[in-house]
Design a protein around this nucleic acid. Structure first.
Lengths: 172, 172
DNA sequence: CTCGATAGTATAACGCGATATATATCGCGA
DNA sequence: TCGCGATATATATCGCGTTATACTATCGAG
């Protein structure tokens, strides 16, 4: 073991939090991949990251703009644009008659989209929900609530500012 | 609110876990982005996802193969290959004399890589650690341990199999 | 010794998150 | 009415995770 720089134990402890971003990304990726595999096996072209958009449109009960979708789901606007373009190609959503403001597009779920959601809601979504819930509860309660909390806190003070504050505090 | 399919409340609850993958990905992405911004501001070309590789090489105290790095960090082999190629381009790691098996490459941290880690370990890594720790502890204790646990459980039984099991159970 | 199976790595392709930027439209003030 | 800043969306690019696949080297059986 090379101890020329400093104690590796310190490095390990520090890297534990430093790697959290990468670990969370990988964990999320694996969840999405599993859902994608099941969707593919059922013959559905839709991607897991597109399901929240269909859900939001269905929950809203009418047409929504790209910006409203992004705000509702916490996804960046370009991400929504790309996903909606794909969903349009699959015929799962459709643009409705433009309103007064011709800059924005009004997007609504299509009958095919509603049929897809009805199909998946019957058995598939509950199965995924129970599988993920089982996984999370085994590690402790209220994981979703804590993710909520972290997202809210980050909205108040971005991590970038928090790091800057810690650096400044260390200087003092 | 469109109630034609089923109760939207059910959809919300189900989608809460269904969207967890996407949410975790976004959360991790934001963390990495913040770290990347600070690294860039300090004039470092290294990307946040490459730091665990440097850490692993330093902790190991000698050359490691691509496969060993991936196994140590839980990253896929192609991900390691790509990151190592970039780190080599930056001069932060170097391939050492090949061993007996000429299929594998022995990668070691370079003096420049050690200098970088020493520089970042002095103030930057601790600041990031404290910032992320503060964020996580505000939402509750032992988040890292719970992530550990979820990763371990997923290694035992992949989510894909868990979903399949839930689907089968629902049939019975 | 040769050949087929296996193992290690690199590459390609894709998904999806981000930011930066281009473009079209709106709204408002001079 | 004209023009200019603001806003909504689309597009380009990048980071980084994945799987699939190609290629090379090794090993073991005959």
């Amino acid at each position: 073991m090379n101890l020329s720089i400093e104690s590796p134990r310190d490095l390990i402890a520090t890297l534990g939090y430093l790697c959290l971003g990468s670990r969370l990304k990988r964990l999320g990726e694996r969840m999405q991949t599993s859902v994608a595999q099941h969707l593919g096996a059922r013959g559905h072209e839709v991607q897991p990251a597109q399901l929240p958009l269909l859900w939001a449109l269905q929950e809203h009960g009418g047409a929504m703009t790209i910006g409203a979708l992004g705000e509702r789901l916490g996804i960046s606007q370009p991400g929504v644009s790309r996903a909606i373009a794909s969903l349009e190609g699959q015929g799962l959503v459709r643009p409705t008659r433009a309103g007064k403001d011709r800059r924005q597009r009004q997007i609504a779920i299509s009958p095919a989209g509603e049929a897809l959601m009805a199909d998946l809601s019957a058995r598939f979504f509950p199965a995924v929900q129970r599988a993920v819930e089982q996984l999370c509860l085994a590690a402790g309660p209220d994981l979703l609530a804590r993710i909520d909390r972290i997202e809210d806190d980050l909205a108040d003070a971005p991590l970038e500012a928090r790091i800057a504050a810690q650096l400044a505090k260390a200087d003092a």
